[in-house]
């Protein structure tokens, strides 16, 4: 049994066929290993290749090259699919079916014993708070309601791994909170969760590990805490010391005045400047307080993307 729930090796996908093949791959040599017991957040701007990656996991599309394995078996293995719960991006279900009927079909496909089907369906409907809509047709559901049903069908088989594509999209704040609670509850129950999202604040609160994808390339992945580790520092300047603030401000990346009249400046990681700061600290004493600065995910995300863009442009220019 593999120690990784999801493992990819140089996984690539270029859409198109023969003459119609696209020039650039939608996914370019993705190598990713996600260990057991984590909530993994998969981030990237629109068109980065997140949905493509997830579809490759689910064997909905075929890779152009590379391999992907889920729970130690190749993607598409029927036995493995029984252990996966999948929520697609913008879930769509047969409009003519009632919610209960659709879940019953899913239960049959998952080979849940007939004696347990009804009970499980009722359980998942209760979890997503859709019990009263069980006999209503899916065609009349709102986006949010469909999302809930989607989550319900994903959890029907008590999966070992939940793969969710943009699960928080389309939900109102109340719904998003409920879903976050579900994800956290699933994690506590031992379910691995892999999901993609744009809502960085939610990813930051829920995920243990993240990966950032941009233009088909995986820019970084790993533990959230290690990725967001100390990057630079924050300097607090006491009130009345505007001269110190003026001296340091040009090198800062961010600055703002505090309510007490003092200043808070943020600085990037820079060894030379660090020396300068230390000297200033020794000189000014308590008027300056230096603290390590932890980058938030959003900043980290944008910085990573921008760095990649710059790198790509430089490569394109031949530098």
């Amino acid at each position: 049994m593999s120690e990784y729930v999801i493992s990819t090796e140089n996984l690539s996908k270029t859409y198109g066929f023969l003459f119609w093949k696209k020039e650039k791959p939608s996914l370019d040599k993705l190598t990713l290993k996600i260990p057991k017991g984590v909530v993994f957040g998969f981030l990237g701007p629109n068109g980065a290749g997140k949905t493509t990656t997830i579809k490759l996991f689910m064997d909905l599309i075929k890779p152009s090259s590379g391999t992907v394995s889920i729970l130690g078996k190749p993607a598409g293995d029927i036995e493995v699919k029984r252990k996966i719960g999948f929520l697609p991006d913008a879930p769509a279900f047969s409009q003519y079916l009632k919610a209960y009927e659709f879940l019953m079909i899913c239960a049959k496909l998952l080979r849940i014993p007939s004696s347990e089907r009804k009970k499980r369906i009722e359980e998942v409907l209760a979890k997503v708070k859709m019990t009263e809509y069980a006999k209503s047709k899916l065609g009349g559901f709102s986006r949010g309601m469909l999302q809930r049903i989607g989550i319900a069908q994903a959890m029907l088989n008590k999966p070992e791994i939940l793969i969710l594509d943009e699960p928080l999209t389309g939900l109102d704040p109340h719904g998003r909170q409920e879903l976050k609670d579900i994800i956290i509850a699933q994690k506590k129950a031992g379910t691995n969760v892999f999901f993609s999202s744009h809502i960085l604040s939610d990813v930051e609160t829920m995920c243990d590990q993240i990966g950032i994808l941009h233009r088909g390339k995986l820019l970084c992945h790993g533990e959230l805490n290690s990725l967001l580790s100390e990057k630079g520092c924050r300097v607090m300047i006491a009130a009345g010391k505007e001269d110190i603030a003026k001296e340091l401000m040009p090198d800062s990346i961010k600055s703002h005045k505090l309510n007490n009249g003092g200043w808070e400046l943020e600085f990037d990681e820079d060894e030379k400047f660090k020396e300068k700061l230390n000297l200033m600290k020794e000189k000014e004493g308590n008027f300056i307080t230096i603290m390590p600065s932890t980058e938030n995910l959003e900043t980290f995300f944008f910085r990573t993307i921008e760095n990649n863009i710059k790198t790509v442009n430089l490569n394109a220019e031949g530098i």
Binding site: M58, K81, P88, D89, A92, F93, S94, R111, G150, Q153
Partner: peptide, 17 residues
């Protein structure tokens, strides 16, 4: 229609050949 709207992807993500 099922292929276009994504209904098929939900069904085919299940253990269904």
């Amino acid at each position: 229609v099922e292929l276009r709207e994504g209904v098929a992807s939900t069904l085919l993500s299940k253990p269904l050949g």
